[in-house]
Amino acid sequence: MTFYGLKTCDTCRKAQKALRGAGHELRVIDVRSDGVSPADLSRFQVEFGDAILNTRSTTWRGLDETERARPVLDLLIDHPTLMKRPVIEINGQLYLGWGKDVQAALLG
């Protein structure tokens, strides 16, 4: 299972703890320090559309209107912390966020 998130994100920490507690082995990729490849970001955008963009983040609030109007993929490449988190990949299936639907699918 590959887990894309941020070390400093409370939701990501809760998700990691729950997943490990359920016996999942995680390969954690910190989107800030490790980075995410443009190919992976593109896959995420294809799968989730504009929902991949976290418009409630501090990074988003710091962008001016010109920046916000750029294509989503370009924004994510330049500002990986704009990615909604976590993105979890298991057996080729992608999950976005840590809502009840994702928890039910991954924790049983």
Rank of each mutant, 00 (worst) to 15 (best):
M1C: 05
T2Y: 07
F3M: 05
F3H: 03
Y4D: 09
G5S: 03
G5I: 02
L6I: 14
K7A: 13
T8D: 10
C9L: 06
C9P: 03
D10Q: 13
T11M: 06
T11D: 08
K14D: 12
K14N: 14
A15I: 00
K17I: 09
A18K: 05
G23P: 01
G23C: 08
L26K: 07
I29L: 06
D30N: 09
V31C: 01
V31R: 01
R32E: 11
S33E: 15
D34A: 09
D34W: 06
G35R: 10
S37F: 08
S37K: 08
A39C: 04
A39M: 08
D40Y: 08
S42T: 14
S42K: 13
F44L: 05
F44N: 00
Q45Y: 03
F48H: 04
F48Y: 05
F48V: 02
G49W: 10
D50E: 15
A51E: 14
I52H: 01
R56I: 02
W60R: 09
D64N: 15
E65Q: 09
E67K: 09
A69K: 12
V72E: 02
V72W: 05
L73C: 15
L73S: 10
I77S: 06
I77G: 01
P80M: 03
L82R: 02
K84E: 12
R85K: 08
R85Q: 02
V87I: 15
I88D: 07
N91A: 15
N91F: 00
G92V: 11
G92A: 08
Q93V: 15
Q93R: 15
L94K: 03
Y95K: 00
K100Y: 00
D101G: 04
V102Y: 04
A105G: 06
A105L: 08
